[in-house]
Design a protein around this nucleic acid. Sequence first.
DNA 1: AATGAATGAGTATTCATTCAT
DNA 2: TATGAATGAATACTCATTCAT
Lengths: 215, 215, 215, 215
Amino acid sequence: MSDSRGNFGAVKRARILQAALRVGELRGVDGARMEEVASLAQVSKGTLYRFFESKHDLFLATIIESYQEGLRIVDIAVDPDSPWQQRLRGRLAALTRVLESLGPRMSLHFQAWGVVAGEPGFQERLYGFLRDFHSARGLEIAEDIREGQRAGEFRADVDAGRLAEGIIALLSGFLYRATFDPDAATSGHLQEAFSTFVRGLASDPAPPAPGDDGA
Amino acid sequence: MSDSRGNFGAVKRARILQAALRVGELRGVDGARMEEVASLAQVSKGTLYRFFESKHDLFLATIIESYQEGLRIVDIAVDPDSPWQQRLRGRLAALTRVLESLGPRMSLHFQAWGVVAGEPGFQERLYGFLRDFHSARGLEIAEDIREGQRAGEFRADVDAGRLAEGIIALLSGFLYRATFDPDAATSGHLQEAFSTFVRGLASDPAPPAPGDDGA
Amino acid sequence: MSDSRGNFGAVKRARILQAALRVGELRGVDGARMEEVASLAQVSKGTLYRFFESKHDLFLATIIESYQEGLRIVDIAVDPDSPWQQRLRGRLAALTRVLESLGPRMSLHFQAWGVVAGEPGFQERLYGFLRDFHSARGLEIAEDIREGQRAGEFRADVDAGRLAEGIIALLSGFLYRATFDPDAATSGHLQEAFSTFVRGLASDPAPPAPGDDGA
Amino acid sequence: MSDSRGNFGAVKRARILQAALRVGELRGVDGARMEEVASLAQVSKGTLYRFFESKHDLFLATIIESYQEGLRIVDIAVDPDSPWQQRLRGRLAALTRVLESLGPRMSLHFQAWGVVAGEPGFQERLYGFLRDFHSARGLEIAEDIREGQRAGEFRADVDAGRLAEGIIALLSGFLYRATFDPDAATSGHLQEAFSTFVRGLASDPAPPAPGDDGA
DNA sequence: AATGAATGAGTATTCATTCAT
DNA sequence: TATGAATGAATACTCATTCAT
């Protein structure tokens, strides 16, 4: 019974987030009225405020939730005990699927971000979360790259950490682009970009051309 | 006289945009009050509305301005009559400088973007501008890549258009990241990512390793 | 058993009134939340409503309680079977003590009074109580005065009822003053005012009785 | 022209205070809606807030205004250059008229007081004003009494300051009583109380002057 | 063209009160 | 009887925008 009580709360919370997402997509963050969110979630306005401190808090939770959803997609696809090539390939493939699944929702995401970032306290919370989230992802990818370097299949003269940030930037950049120009940011684009990027990492079979500095 | 009048207007417009930028950075888009923008720009609220239809119109102009500022940086650095290698190298170097110059201002940029995107009419204007802007940049870069392919220095089996979008995504992604985590999105990061990317484009001096599919 | 039950109820009621008083002093009537009153009284919000119809009902009870506390102070001090001079003297001395005991609490009292008086139904209840309470007190004092007149020690040409109201007004006036200016409304002030008032009552055709200081 | 501008403001302010008074009397302070005050004052809600920071600020101003109205009544009636007996008599007569004029409005007064006193900042402003106001009145009356003492017509052994506070308390007390029981707090009551009070002040070693009725 | 006083639409939030357990 | 989660009415206040001067 205490179990079901606790679950009732979690279920309600999820219903509210779901409703906020739907209303937000329909009316935009500014245009969303708490009244409508509450009614769609089948709770009263008062109950809304038992779960979220304010409208902005609610939409901040929406953002964070969507990031963690993306993380779940990647985690499911990547077996940490598999060999590194498989892991890296799986990770990139999963990130491609993240683009497909989150892309259409990015407009709301950026809206909420804009509203929330206007307030110092919220900005700190949001930025802190994003910093931590991206850092953690970066470390995972960098580890894959380093294993490739140790295996002699990736050039040893590149900074794994920096390139991992590059991988993440590619994904973020396409998510951004997908927001307003879905045709220019398909999973095909992302895949091809990843391929080129990884190819650029590959240890040259032949000695590198003299003077090749890449840019 | 009409000239000087016109210039007075342009000067005022610039002063207003400048003021909006400063107030926006200080208070966020939602928190910025037209009153304060007006007073900082040393015009009356009424005058604000002679130059911009609404608050959102003003901040939309702010966004567009920042994109065009980026464009100016690149255009100055790239001589269209120079050889393509020089042009590509110059372009990437200039984009790196764009990251440095716009990075600190991206928070306001994304805020404004998010807020403005909430209204259908504005979303259309903003997204249309962004689509056009990015497409045009993509075409320029793709042209450089194609010249490299014609010269036999870039792999012929890659889609120049798609990879150009990749270059742009790298920049966008780092600009995004710089918003909340400047240390993870320095010009060093961008440069290294560009290098790897271009290296991945390079025509293999040796025959490509069998089974190399990049990812 | 019904006795102890009833007593439990009385104890709870008293605890609630006590809590309302404390919370009210701390936050003001408007700022006091039933939640906090309940928690301080160690009962649930629901229980609060078994004892008091509403928040305003609760604070109305607080006011009435403070009047009855004042009455208790006087009643203890005045022996109805003692001679009238002693009775009057005791009454005035007791009223002085009322000022000392209630003075510090008058701010909440007037706050509650003001808030409660805003609603017609409550105004009627409050005003009715105050009217009855003050009338009863007036009659008691008037009776003392009339005995003094019958004894020839008080001027016969004054209206005892009216002067009794004056005595009461003096107390009320100082209680009011004490709310915002305790230093100007000490028991010393009240005593001196009472003395002057009673001296003004004294029958003067004959030389004043030696040692008559009025109170 | 600048004059009329300035007057427009003063006129509007007065109209708003007037409207607040009327709406407050009709609905109570809590029940009064700013919307209704604005419409009655024939200004917009926005304009209301150009003159008063908040609803509470507005009703605080109402209280202060009513005190100053009372002061005006007294000032008009008292010629500072007239002999002290006349001055004191005039003052007491004027205070009686204050009771008549403010009595019916005291309920609103206490309501506003209650609401306003709940907030620390406002409490300080209100209490400070009341303290200053009553002190100033006390000093004026005390001066009259001291002249009476110097003239040998008032007992020299009483503290003029304290008795002045008594006079003021009598008025306050009757104003309070008038709020809920107008029949027990008429100007007749106040007059008789003043008379008795002044008679108690009279120097009694000598036989009372014939026709001395105190006020 | 410029001003800035006036307007008024629009809604997040609170918290007294209820009632299912 | 007691509880405290859920309800939802009710409104002060802001500030983008307008327009008379």
